Structures are given as C-alpha cells and as structure tokens.
Simulated assay, not measured.
Amino acid sequence: MRIRIVAVATALVVLAAACSSGGTKKPTGESATTTPSGPVVHVTEPGVTDTEIHVGAVTSKTNPLGGNYADLDAGIKAYFAMVDAGGGVFGRQLKLTSERDDNTVSNQAEVQAMLSQDNVFAAFVATLLFTGADLLQRQGIPTFVWNINPEFADKDHLFGNIGAICFGCIGQGLPWLARKLGAKKVGVVGYGVSQESKLCAAGIRDSFKKFPTAQVAFFDDSLPFGVPDLSSQVASMKKGGVDFVTTCMDLNGVFTLAKEMAKQGLKAVQYLPNGYDSDFMAANGQFFEGDYVVTQFVAFEQTPRNKQISDFFRWIGRTGGKPDELSMSGWILADEFVTGLRKAGPAFSRQKVVDALNAGVYDPGGLIEPIDWRYQQTGRQSSAPRSSR
C-alpha cells in the first residue's frame, strides 16, 4: 500500500489550515512532567482541590459519520497519566472526571450541563458542531479544542491543536500539489449541510482560480452527511477528465468516493484531509493507492521518532487507548493545558491559565507547527482550506 503522508509540521507546511509562527522549544516527554515540590498552595477555583484538578470533555461520540471523536478522551487520559506518574502539577493529580456525548446536535446543552453539574476547571472539545463555543467564552473557561469549527475563531479563552481556521480562504497548497502531480483537471466535493464544508470547497475552487495550475472541472458542494451513492458525481468527473480529486468530507465520505472511483475506473489521485487511521488503511488501503493524506502533527511513521510521539505510544498503550489522530489531538491539547497551568504558577486560576497561553508561543517540542496565540485566535488568515469532518 502506497499512501503518501504529508505532515503539516514537516514538509508541506503550505497545506496547513492555520498560519503558524516559530518559537523556542521547551522540554517534552517524561523528563518534563515533574513540578517542583513544596507546600501545596490552596486554590479556590471550580474543579480544584488540594490533591486534584478536574477537567471535562464534550465529544461527538454519537455521530452520523462514524467518526471516532471520543478517542480525544483517551489521549487526554494518557497524557495525564504520564504527568501524574511524575508527581502531577503543583502537588495535584490531573483527572478527566466528565466525559459527555453531545450526540452531534446537543453541543450547547451538554456544555451547559458540564459547567453547571460537573465542577470542572477546564474543558476539552471534539465535536462536529460547536454551538457551545460562545458559552465557554462567556464563562471564562480555559477550553482546548480539536479545531474543525468556525465557532472557534475570535475567542481568547479557546485554544486548539491548530490556530483558528480561515475556511474559505485562498491558499497555494493544493494548486502546488496539483502541479507536483502534473494534474490537469480537478474535482472538488463537499457537504451542503455543513457551512464550513461549503466554505472549504469554495476556498479550494477559488484557490485554483488564483493559482491556475489545474482547472476545476467538477464541483459539488451539495452532498448530505453519510451519502451512500456517489455514482453520478464520479461519472461526471470521469467524463470531464478529472485526474486529481480533493474533498471537504469525513473519512467515510472519502471512502465512499474512493470505492466508486475504483468501480468506475476513474484514475485520479485523491487528497485526503482526513484519512490518517492505520487500522482503516490496513483494511481498505487498496482504494487509496498513491493518494495523499495530511496530518496536523508529525507523522507516527517519521524516523527518527519525535520524543513526544514515543511518549504518546508508551502511555496510550499503558492506559488502553488507541493511537490515532483524535487520541493524539487529545494528547496535544492536554500538553497545551498543562503548559498553561505551569506558566500560571502555583496560585493558578482559570484566567491566569488563559493569560499565560495568550502571552506567547505554544510549541510542544516540534510535534506540531508552533502556535502563537497572540495572533492566531482569528480566523481571517489567508491560507489553504481545511476540511469539515
């Protein structure tokens, strides 16, 4: 199986959805998990005792796409286990004590319930829809988000695995890739029921207008979630001579598309903004031979292995989680939370954590492109579009 992996943190930075800035690196891994010992400073914040710090997570565990969004929790738990094994933070153990499923359509209700019922200091989110974003901002909650949502932008209490996304912005990444492949005709496919997917598709189309390395010969941004039949779209792409396909869809959507392309004999390279799942590719890789898949972190396969990746595999195994994109995103967000917590100091508060992160660059030792939160809360940067999952 020949799947080309493009890690945003390494070779193909121009395919990233958010602009990033460089910064100095900090120690990572187990060597960086301990906090200087001393008397515990009493903190009067929600979710904080003299021995523990409690956080909560809301994910779209139940969703129409078959996505593994709840794996975010496994990554958080693995990172917390590593930190706790090293003595915790300021004499306290870190605990994910609330794990809520928003069933895709109840995000705001579940966020409200977590805040009013679960007594948490900070929040983590991996959801298809993010209607609770404004509530988290208004309540001043340090919130750490697997960022695929336009609601993330322009909120200074929200921090992501990447900076704010400009969904409809023009970028050079995909035109560059098309030129590299020698592609002449492009097919663009997106969901009509997702505003970010429609913006993503429009951004791709407009990128090829500005950087005409290839012609957009097919465009459809009207698909429903869970679309079972793409025969008409593939037939049109084949008739139009499409040799490069890019989508703003989830993994199941691109799988449906890939199977139909194989069935109709459409020989085209597919760019997969979603698809970094080793188990899925092991079972279905024959449909993706020669395609490109993007990651928002250093690929697991890269050698020599980044120390954070080594620690991730060690601790995700010890805690019974599955190593995949969502659990790695949970690990990154947990590291970001702990980074802010340590910078806030022993007399930490929610606002001090927020202020500490917003004061500069977050850089987990080369695991991702460094994020400068002084500038990257806005979704108005001009960059390559990212898909809706």
Results as ranks from 00 to 15, higher is better:
45 E>D: 05
157 H>Q: 14
386 R>T: 15
10 T>Y: 05
248 C>R: 02
256 T>L: 10
139 Q>F: 07
17 A>L: 04
98 S>P: 03
228 P>F: 06
196 E>Y: 07
358 N>F: 06
299 A>K: 06
370 P>H: 11
170 I>N: 00
83 V>Y: 05
227 V>K: 14
150 P>G: 11
380 R>L: 11
112 Q>D: 12
175 P>S: 13
162 I>Y: 03
142 P>W: 00
80 F>I: 00
156 D>R: 15
253 G>T: 05
15 L>Q: 03
250 D>R: 04
84 D>H: 00
274 N>M: 05
202 A>W: 07
322 K>G: 03
337 F>G: 01
293 V>F: 04
82 M>L: 07
1 M>S: 14
383 S>Q: 12
143 T>K: 02
286 Q>W: 05
294 V>A: 12
344 A>M: 08
60 S>A: 05
238 K>F: 02
61 K>T: 11
236 S>D: 04
50 D>W: 01
65 L>V: 04
260 E>L: 04
171 G>C: 03
24 T>G: 15
105 V>G: 13
216 V>G: 06
305 R>T: 15
198 K>C: 11
298 V>L: 13
57 A>T: 04
34 T>H: 15
136 L>N: 02
196 E>W: 08
192 G>A: 02
71 D>M: 01
382 S>D: 11
293 V>M: 05
90 F>M: 07
1 M>K: 13
258 A>P: 10
80 F>P: 00
112 Q>V: 09
174 L>Q: 13
357 L>Y: 12
249 M>P: 00
49 T>G: 12
25 K>C: 07
18 A>R: 09
172 Q>T: 15
16 A>D: 15
382 S>M: 13
188 V>H: 01
377 Q>H: 15
321 G>D: 03
106 S>R: 14
281 M>S: 05
108 Q>L: 13
346 P>E: 07
344 A>K: 08
384 A>F: 02
369 E>L: 14
25 K>W: 01
64 P>M: 08
376 Q>E: 12
68 N>L: 13
